[in-house]
Design a protein around this nucleic acid. Structure first.
Lengths: 174, 174
DNA sequence: GAGATCAGTCAACAAGGCTGACATAATTCG
DNA sequence: CGAATTATGTCAGCCTTGTTGACTGATCTC
């Protein structure tokens, strides 16, 4: 914390620069992560609850919005759940008319997933809530803190797979 | 991102300072949060899985370690789940000999919760994994980014309750 | 002594993970 | 062409972890 920008006064045994690596500081980071994530998912969860949907549906909707026409296998790859688990969620979304599944043009074994109008509307409502939270937070702390925030999250991701994830996040190829 | 420290050159219509607030930037933050949290919980989940325990057990263990002697009501307050839900988890932990529940000294209706030796050992193993991840991340990005990371997480927390949470995180009173 | 409070429990339900097994198309390979 | 592979869907069953509602027992407090 406190830690100022550059070098500490000399002659100190436990330099200020390393203070942010004490078990205590690390523990605080861990707990903050827990509480922040809980609230981060809270708003959408509430909206989804109204319609009998859950967080799993949100994730599917989010990434279908992000990659319209994505195949089931593609979504499985991103979400890293079993196909049985995803299938249940997807079936519900299709039954409710939020997601449209159509036979692949090139490879007719594949299914290309899209959001219906209703699906788009729900997605917009959900992502709006999360963007609001981020916007408020980002606005409060300013661009430098935001840059730090992103840096930490990025290196928090498992090293194998990190490149793929960062690629996905920043619009990168499927 | 990039955004420098102070004021930008004047006369710019969409100042650099606001670039980090576009929907696109916000969406990236949201997705990073999702992926980082997934990996953040991955390591402990694996260890817990070996013993037939889950994330809920981890949370209980974590906060009992943090506040030895905490009462059931106190834990409920932190975790924000129903007492039936917590009770199931707690019962398992007590049955497995990881947590010790003893009648309150002052108020005999209360139960004070502690970790047993085994509980301490498991907690150490789990928190070690998470601290390692944070330590690596923090070390990689440096103290300034860490400060930014923490600032964002803090203001991400719901405003009602934020003070209480921050108080808890930073060792504050029960 | 009456009423409030803390803890524990039973029962029932739902979401969303998992495994394993199997079916059906469609594509690709030999 | 026929066989193997691939993409998807589905059935069945199991687990964890959340929920509500109802109720008990012990202990405080007024």
């Amino acid at each position: 914390m406190q830690g100022s920008t550059t070098t500490p006064p000399s002659g100190i045994r436990r330099p200020d620069q390393l203070l942010f690596l004490t078990d205590e500081q690390l523990r605080q980071g861990i707990e903050l992560m827990f509480f922040a994530y809980r609230d981060f998912t809270g708003d959408p969860d509430a909206v989804l609850g109204e319609r009998g949907l859950g967080r799993a549906h949100h994730r599917a909707i989010h990434f279908i919005k992000r990659r319209p026409g994505i195949t089931v296998a593609g979504l499985l790859d991103i979400l890293q759940v079993t196909k049985q688990s995803l299938n249940r969620v997807l079936r519900q979304l299709i039954d409710e008319g939020l997601v449209i599944s159509e036979v692949g043009k090139e490879d007719r074994r594949e299914r290309n997933l899209h959001l219906s109008e209703d699906g788009e509307a729900l997605e917009a409502r959900l992502s709006e809530l999360q963007r609001d939270r981020f916007r408020r937070a980002y606005r409060t702390v300013g661009p430098e803190a935001v840059a730090g925030f992103r840096q930490v999250l990025e290196v928090m991701i498992n090293e194998e797979g990190r490149e793929q994830v960062l690629n996905l996040v920043s619009k990168g190829a499927p």
